[in-house]
């Protein structure tokens, strides 16, 4: 397995440093941060008033409001806390089938960890196949990013995919209400089920699906009588794969992406599909910006 550290060169990091992960809803991770939390606390951004109760800091009493109402009100401010970005990385066998697809997925995960830690957020990497296996928690700052690169380099793609099951796992895994970023090729017969997509959002509010695929996933190059075999099990279909059938297949694949995008949009999930032959920095600066994943 290649060491991801060599990919994340200072130049690459400098290019993607120009963008940040989407702000999203106000959530709190519990640790002090630059990011405004939904909680009220010691921040600088005004949040609300409430009636003064004994023990409140008298400095926080709004005297102007007292002048108008004759009652004491205390000013409340948003607490500034970090957020937890959960990156779910598909490590099933299908990710290894297309050229560079799994490498792209790991690099995406590493870059997303970089952006999250850059913004003083906490990142969690949750690799999964049939279920989430040994997530890497508490990635903060430069050390957390470096730690994630070494950890990602050691991952293998194997096992079956069970996205609905994984969605359930993620619900139990993520305690705070941070965004979930799913990096996957979405190759599961149940991928399009509404339950899977809606459970991704659930109570956590925001989710992002980054659909990765290899160019050969979309346009098969082989021709002739072939037996198409599923990399994850022994299912197979004998076909005469000629140009017409290849074209129909590409159309079906694109239709699959479109339908996924439409479903995600209807559920408020950000969706972007990335081919493994794309320049990753360009992806962050262009496709992700267009999809609202970075800003």
């Amino acid at each position: 397995m290649d060491d991801l550290s060599s990919f994340f060169t200072p130049e690459f990091l400098a290019r993607i440093s120009r963008v940040s992960l989407f702000a999203g809803k106000l959530v709190g991770g519990g640790r002090p941060s630059d990011r405004t939390s939904k909680r009220t606390g010691t921040g600088t951004e005004f949040a609300d008033h409430r009636e003064y109760i004994h023990g409140d800091d008298p400095k926080q009493i709004d005297w102007r409001l007292y002048g108008r109402t004759g009652k004491f009100f205390t000013k409340l401010y948003h607490s500034e806390e970090d957020r937890i970005v959960t990156i779910a990385l598909d490590c099933s066998s299908s990710m290894s089938a297309g050229r560079d697809k799994f490498d792209l997925a790991r690099r995406l995960a590493g870059a997303l960890v970089f952006l999250a830690t850059k913004d003083r957020d906490t990142a969690v990497i949750a690799p999964f196949d049939e279920k989430v296996r040994n997530p890497l928690h508490g990635l903060r700052g430069e050390p957390g990013f470096r730690r994630s690169l070494g950890w990602l380099s050691g991952l293998d793609a194997k096992g079956h995919t069970d996205l609905p099951g994984v969605a359930g796992n993620l619900l139990g895994l993520v305690k705070s209400r941070g965004p979930i970023i799913l990096i996957s090729d979405l190759m599961d017969s149940r991928t399009q089920s509404a339950g899977f997509l809606s459970s991704l959002t659930g109570k956590h509010g925001e989710a992002v699906i980054i659909h990765v695929f290899a160019p050969t996933d979309r346009e098969p190059q082989i021709r002739g009588y072939v037996r198409i075999m599923d990399v994850e099990d022994n299912n197979s279909i004998p076909v005469l794969l000629d140009s017409r059938l290849a074209k129909r297949y590409t159309e079906t694949f694109d239709m699959f992406r479109k339908s996924m995008k439409a479903r995600c949009r209807s559920l408020g999930i950000r969706y972007v599909s990335i081919s493994s032959d794309k320049d990753l920095a360009e992806v962050f600066l262009k496709e992700f910006r267009e999809a609202g994943i970075t800003c």
Binding site: P220, I228, D230, I237, Y249
Partner: peptide, 13 residues
């Protein structure tokens, strides 16, 4: 016939 191992079997089906 030759085997074409794919990760996109659901699309083929």
């Amino acid at each position: 016939r030759r085997k074409l191992v794919v990760g996109t079997f659901p699309v083929w089906t």
